[in-house]
Amino acid sequence: MRSYLDFEKPVAELEAKLEELRQIEANGDGVSIADEISRLEAKSAEALKGLYAALTPWQKTMVARHPQRPHFVDYCAGLITDFTPLAGDRAFGEDEAIVGGFGRFRGEPVCVIGQEKGSTTDARIRHNFGMARPEGYRKAVRLMELADRFGLPMLSFVDTAGAYPGIEAEERGQAEAIARSTEACLALGAPNVSVIIGEGGSGGAIAIATANKVLMLEHTIYSVISPEGAASILWRDAARAQDAATNMKITAQDLVKLGVIDGVIPEPPGGAHRDPAAAIAATGEAIATALTDLHNMGPEEIRDHRADKFLRIGRKV
């Protein structure tokens, strides 16, 4: 069962009609409606393409959070062989909001870290909706330090509304854990590539997204605060989220212009959730290209490349 977003209503109606016609044809009453079906299919595909070519920042926010969008575990399954997840921060516990381990990307060993939102109710609870606690970031630090010791590149997949805001998270030093994780990214002597596959929410995202190359899928967002949060702080009205989404420049297209990210990965027509395999394949290609660009650099060069890139952001030239 496909779930439609509000703005997809025209497409939803066309597709419902199509489904009806297909049923009629399957019942085989002899009436030939194949022409009508293919006409409608073309129309529906056209409508979908048109809709997705002109998404507003708020609509992109909805797409980025679409429950059927491929999540980290899907990218991992599609792109990484021999994936071996590791667990625990060796200090307090295991936090499944961040999944990480080692595997092979196109044959080469890499460290892989990502936020997982979960796709079923059980999984969502287990992964805490992708909102990590300090343990999650400390596990990420541990894995990055291990990767660095063995000179392995790091791939990270970002998909979080933000780090978890709770009493225990504060008690155990959420801020310190995030800061250390950002720092661990900066210390890596091998290249790292980060892909925003859904939501890039604030400090919870940057903690694993401080990378030599940062890429975003076409319909994802990356922001210092959720549009809802910004609306309630700046306008004192959460209903102004649409304005916040527009004014804060959170889309991949805006961020490439601001020089904050390095590239946009095209999504299949109608968004990654319509064709996860295609979205994952395109992401694989983009990561491979990014790694090739960074291929011949030594550890110091890689660290300087990363630091210089971030220091250049927002500077007058």
Binding site: A179, L186, S202, L255
Partner: peptide, 21 residues
Amino acid sequence: ARMQEGVLSLMQMPRTTIAVR
């Protein structure tokens, strides 16, 4: 973060961390 600067304010987290390093 300075919300009025959107993601550019977020970028100050890695930028200041570089200085600390």
